[in-house]
Amino acid sequence: MFGSKKSPLKVAKPSSVESWTNPFDSNDEGMDTKKYSSSRKTSSERALTTLGVNTNPFDDGTDANKKSSSTLYGFQSANWNKYKNDFRDSGGLENQSVQELESYAVYKAEETTNSVTNCLKIAENIREEATQTLVTLHQQGEQITRSHHVAADIDHDLTRGEKLLGSLGGLFSKTWKPKKTRAITGPVIVGDDPVRRKGNHLEQREKLGLTSAPKGQSKLRSPPQEPTNAFEKVEVEKNKQDDALSDLSDLLGELKGMAVDMGSEIERHNKALNHLYDDVDELNFRVIGANQRGRRLLGK
């Protein structure tokens, strides 16, 4: 919806892969591959980049002239290639000027920030999906319980039917009693059943000081001043990474909780389905018996 988003997985490639070069490749071949890869852009991408199309409905076009963070730090695409292969083409890390190395440090810091942000995006997507899965599991649990209630109702009706079938025989016929192997139990709530456990658990956690509420507030701090030198830029990136990693940590903790809840709910479903299976099996046995009795009565 908002601009042409690429898959977060494709954005930040690990530097180890990028930096590896084939020792048997000649330089001009390497140039060729770069040429091809750049022309491999889709027509829509090319159009967007050349026209500078703005697809975000919340953009006023006011910041169209703003430079991206990478251009703010004075990176040209030519330099990027240098950084990507760790200055292999220009004499290695040892032969670079201090300024060049500072720029390289900023580039690497930015790259790391992007990677962490992409991880966070992926984790957010997983969380969204997991939330939906949990809702579906809850619905499934309800359906199992409802099905079991229906089985119990069928048992009730079948009992009445069996009584009628028993009283339908002739005057001298032997009284018929339905065979029952076990009683129909109906839906059983298994074990502790944490899902339906009510209580002010969250308030108790808050009183204990276990909630993550204060941490969130820290992120509402005023934005830092525009960094001037490379060291400050790296520090800014580090702070961004810290924030993102903190969020990622929280998200992963939540995902763990979700996975545990999914597991325990599925276990509950399995037990509930076992009970349901036993009851339906018993009902089936009794229906067969009732049918036999009915056929015998009709045959007389």
């Binding site: 919806m1 908002f2 988003k5 975000n56 409905p57 919340f58 953009d59 006023d60 006011t62 910041d63 942000t117 966070l120 995006k121 957010e124 997507n125 969204e128």
Partner: peptide
Amino acid sequence: VAKFTDVVKEFDSMTPLDSWKTTLLL
């Protein structure tokens, strides 16, 4: 308005807003 736009863009960059939210925020 500029701050509003920035806040929305930042949130959307992490979790894309669906059409309903977009309509209301507009």
